[in-house]
Design a protein around this nucleic acid. Structure first.
Lengths: 255, 255
DNA sequence: CGCCATGACTGGCCTGACCAGTAAACTCAC
DNA sequence: GTGAGTTTACTGGTCAGGCCAGTCATGGCG
């Protein structure tokens, strides 16, 4: 056939990229495990046969990708870091910042993620995970007096516990990012308004409802309630003409 | 209170990081738009007051993050690139390779996203959007003879049309990313298997079912069907002991 | 035995240089 | 004038070598 020979786009490969690739693959292959150390820059220079600036460019790229960390003066050399979703979070944040998304879109996405997390948690949770969620909820209750900062932290912990029970860390990562984006957009308005004890109590109550649905393993209810909770929270920040986008996620309540 | 003063972890900020931040923010702010050029390295050296190796480290990081591209000899300087989700895909693939994330998780996430997109589309679509979806579906049908490559492209177009009707680009981007990550992980197995006409016909049929639900504005059905379609597609690639994670998203069919 | 100075490392940063590209300016024949 | 080819002034890629401030293990000192 005429498209039998598919040629790939060629691009000059920089030296530093070859180094990045080699180290990256060594990590993926497991030859280099978290906690282990890379040879010193000067040692790498001799091993790769490149100059120090080139080796350093490679290390800076790896560092910015969260794979290694260099500390000045450390005689053991750069450290291989444990895998983390920090890179994903960074990229995700960039995505949200770039395509400056509408408020409605962000919140709609949160409703989807949170709802799905609750649904999965209700169906997959173990007893241990349930009690873990209960503990974080208790912490939220305790944190009400401590102010919004503490309360918010406990809130995140609860959602993390739910996500863990749902066995899907992607949901949690995305949720965290979107949550951060939303907050950065309305932080000024929220920081003070949310400090009210009444609002925190209401929020706590909403979370309790979700947890109750998770307890009785009613996935659909858990999802429905957490979507509605988010809507109640944030709908006020969404322009009227965009509210329909959020309501579309709610009106399955009659089923 | 004793924890009134919350100190943040400090970490020495490298010079190259400051440069990365400045350029990154200039792009996010919109001061630098895709297609525009950065000053030459030597010019940046004078502007930032850093040495060339340092400036280059910053550029390499930006380059590896897909924000700029340097071509040797280009008198216009490094180019600002349009945003792309390639970095996101890379990060996600990496996470799966590092075994921090399972295949089941990726597919579960796709089921959630795709289902939500279909639900939103069913409820928010206009007539124009409906016929747009119908056109892409017709294109899929035509592409069956042209092989999996064409078919897959038409497939993506359909999902894009659905996402557009759902008015949530975050869903679409995330879906694209996860889709890419999944494919890059099973591409070897899939490339040949999926080339079968029978499988493509079946896929087409599944898409038609979703579209029908969108046509009659039955959001829940649209969501349910597209989740099940994905399950049927990919369940085979998920280890048995993780299948439960996917099934948890399906067994709301009795409602 | 505990403490502290020392020295041999580390990474962070800089200077200055060479090379191979690129493309625009420039030439020059037509 | 216009087109082709050539020059030139840049670009980024890479290197060698050097200085500094930090870290840590060593070993001598009290």
């Amino acid at each position: 056939m005429s498209e039998g020979a598919q040629f790939q786009q060629v691009s000059p490969v920089r030296l530093y990229q070859r180094i990045v690739e080699q180290i990256e693959q060594a990590i993926v292959r497991g030859d280099l495990k978290p906690g282990q150390r890379l040879p010193s820059e000067r040692e790498l220079v001799t091993q790769f046969g490149a100059s120090r600036p080139t080796v350093r460019e490679a290390l800076r790229v790896l560092e910015s990708n969260g794979l290694v960390r260099s500390r000045p003066g450390d005689p053991n050399g750069p450290e291989i870091l444990p895998f983390s979703s920090a890179g994903l979070t960074k990229e995700m944040t960039r995505l949200v910042q770039f395509d400056n998304m509408s408020m409605a879109e962000l919140i709609s996405f949160r409703m989807i993620l949170d709802g799905s997390a609750s649904l999965l948690a209700a169906r997959l949770r173990t007893e241990e995970e349930l009690s873990s969620m209960e503990r974080t909820l208790a912490a939220m209750s305790d944190a009400i007096e401590a102010g919004y900062g503490q309360f918010s932290k406990a809130d995140v912990a609860f959602h993390e516990a739910v996500a863990r029970a749902g066995r899907n860390s992607l949901i949690e990562v995305c949720n965290q990012v979107v949550r951060g984006a939303v907050l950065s957009l309305i932080s000024d308005k929220v920081a003070h308004a949310r400090n009210s004890t009444a609002l925190m109590r209401e929020s706590l109550h909403h979370h309790q409802e979700v947890l109750e649905a998770i307890r009785v393993r009613d996935g659909l209810a858990a999802a429905r309630i957490s979507r509605r909770n988010l809507y109640d929270y944030y709908a006020g920040y969404v322009p009227e003409n965009e509210q329909g986008l959020l309501l579309a996620l709610l009106d399955d309540e009659e089923t």
